[in-house]
Design a protein around this nucleic acid. Structure first.
Ligand code: FES
Ligand code: FES
Lengths: 154, 154
DNA sequence: ATGATCTCAACAAATTTAGTTGACAAAGTG
DNA sequence: CACTTTGTCAACTAAATTTGTTGAGATCAT
């Protein structure tokens, strides 16, 4: 259950673009220094975001990277899925297509619920939210009181 | 964001022990064949669970593995943390101790909320729940309606 | 044309994952 | 006691993934 450097870099770079003045390209090097990301690695990542339709690019002098769409329409989940695969995998497979037997049968449902809860965060936060520094209320509540779930219902 | 084979195996093995008749050791080979886990790898894992105090062992003929504590007192999170480190890491660090700048400042809170939501599943499901095949109501609701979060509150 | 910038394929070091091997220790059985 | 069964442990390894780097080229504005 770890977020890789690549995914973290991707979201940070996308947040920089979301915060930039619209229509003006941001240079790769500007993003790299602002977020302390190795430039070459960052360019690999930005190219993948471009292929996914999240970023668009402008070559030549005064070139750089821009968001291809509105900051409020791109979620963190979109960015992560563009550079890694699906959000939540078990042994490299999607939760649905693994099969559990005997005492572990119910484990499949645990992984499905886990993925649903991961998505409830990552698909609910947009690049605009991060750039503005204001997260959705349902997410901010979890930050303010991370132990709220401790009331166990059965 | 992936669950490794090791973590998956660990929970499955622990679920088998939770389902076994209390006080009677289960042989490593029995767990391995029941859950299709390579025996040697499984033994590595069970030894880590023993060091974590989740499992206890009995050597010799009629030996095997037993839960060291009640199935209802061990959560999936406990098992995963015993064989991997912390539940949620960003670039190998805990969400608190990473520093974000500029447009990405709010990203730290996103990771914190993400971890809180991961814990709300994994710390709420016990080995007993899995062995009995009955998950807590709050978890089961997510399985039945994985898209319930789609109502976005801001 | 020229210099700045993105594009892409290929390479590679470090780390993690997913095991395997083999010698050994303890517990029971005859 | 000898012997078999079973867990213990350290060391080793192969493959995949992560985290980059290198260098040659394509494209754009001026
Ligand atoms: S075939 Fe289902 S776990 Fe073995
Ligand atoms: S289907 Fe394969 S072990 Fe059950």
């Amino acid at each position: 259950m770890r977020i890789t450097a690549k995914a973290d870099y991707a979201v940070r770079a996308a947040a920089v673009l979301a915060a930039a003045v619209p229509g003006v390209p941001v240079k790769g090097e500007a993003i790299a220094t602002a977020q302390h990301i190795p430039l070459n690695f960052l360019e690999n990542i930005l190219r993948e975001l471009r292929r996914a339709g999240i970023v668009r690019t402008q070559r030549g002098a005064d070139g750089g990277y821009l968001l291809a769409v509105g900051p409020e329409t791109v979620t963190v989940a979109d960015v992560i899925r563009a550079v890694e695969g699906p959000l939540a995998e078990i042994q490299g497979e999607r939760p649905e297509q693994l099969h559990y037997d005997g005492a572990a049968t119910a484990l499949a449902d645990v992984w499905i619920a886990l993925r649903a809860n991961i998505r409830s965060i990552l698909e609910n936060v947009t690049l605009g939210d991060i750039a503005r520094g204001q997260l959705p209320e349902s997410v901010q509540m979890l930050v303010d009181d991370p132990d709220s779930w401790k009331a166990r219902i059965r």
